[in-house]
Write a protein that binds this DNA or RNA. Structure first.
Lengths: 168, 168
DNA sequence: CGCGACTGGTCCCTGTTGAAACTAACGATT
DNA sequence: AATCGTTAGTTTCAACAGGGACCAGTCGCG
């Protein structure tokens, strides 16, 4: 049971419990939650998570460029591009040229897209409600607050640009 | 501004703010944290996250079967199998037959593997400490508690087997 | 106005992922 | 001891993700 002083840091390696390791818990919990959300969105609306995110941002702003979506949905531009392409192919989004900048595109909901968006938001709220129902009001608020703080903290440590919530 | 009563649930779709949506925050935060961890483990020890998890479980128990690893590390068996294979190839793990069950294998750290494990645990603790330093003690505890509870809650909703923390 | 530096977006290439199929072995039941 | 259903682990295959190269197109500066 006793270890020499000089070996303290090394000898307790065996005590390491992955399941009490917070980054692991975070990943495991997120994985379960994401899976549940992905399943419901796919089943009920035929949307992947990236597609739903794009839809949510475009729906919120009415019109949005892929780079806006990238910013607000914390998705890299490749993901946005792909998700937007499938949504356009399915007739939920219309993509046009931005008249004021030849490089940029504008994304806008079609009537069909608006319909899906109107169905997606309540579903999202319902699922979030589901999640919240297992927690006290206070815990929920703390969780929200802590996640934001942790995100910012990590970003500051790693130096801003980290990849999934990238640039601009 | 006013909407008919019957449209309340529908008409507020435009108000939906993705960045306040908890499942989204959870995913975004986890993504940043994972990225940071993956980077450090890769740079300093040449380990991917799945490999580190396998190492952690085997290191903790001394000897572990892939299915034990799957259970404790919340990884599906394919991931375990692959991670274990690379660790064996790199000489960090030894895989042998379980004498008491011809189907099962036993994973054990080699001397080299023990060395890496002894380096990995402090690195993990350091990174976790980094993360914790942005939060109050109380928030940290709440986060830990809430994640566990939420995990269990989701699992109970989706009915146990959900895929990444699968079987047995 | 023409040239270089930069930005928005897409495409290509490679590595990773998980679902499902497969192999081998166990154990219960006949 | 032959068979059926089940479990441990690996392999295969198709989808997916992200980094980087790659076009436009824009902006600034001489």
């Amino acid at each position: 049971m006793n270890t020499k002083l000089s070996e303290l840091a090394v000898e307790d390696s065996g005590d390491f419990k992955l399941e009490e390791f917070l980054p692991f818990q975070l990943a495991a919990t997120t994985s379960r939650v994401s899976r549940m959300f992905a399943k419901r969105f796919a089943e009920e609306l035929g949307l992947s998570i990236p597609e739903w995110r794009v839809l949510a941002v475009v729906g919120r702003f009415g019109t949005a460029s892929p780079s806006m979506v990238s910013e607000w949905a914390a998705m890299d531009k490749v993901k946005v591009s792909r998700a937007a392409a499938t949504l356009v192919a399915r007739g939920l989004l219309k993509q046009t040229q931005d008249p004021s900048d030849g490089r940029a595109r504008l994304l806008r909901l079609t009537r069909k897209g608006t319909g899906v968006h109107h169905a997606a938001v309540p579903l999202a709220r319902e699922l979030e409600e589901n999640l919240a129902s297992g927690l006290s009001r206070g815990d929920w608020g703390t969780l929200q607050r802590v996640l934001l703080r942790m995100s910012a903290h990590v970003e500051s440590i790693t130096g801003g640009v980290d990849g999934d919530e990238p640039e601009e």
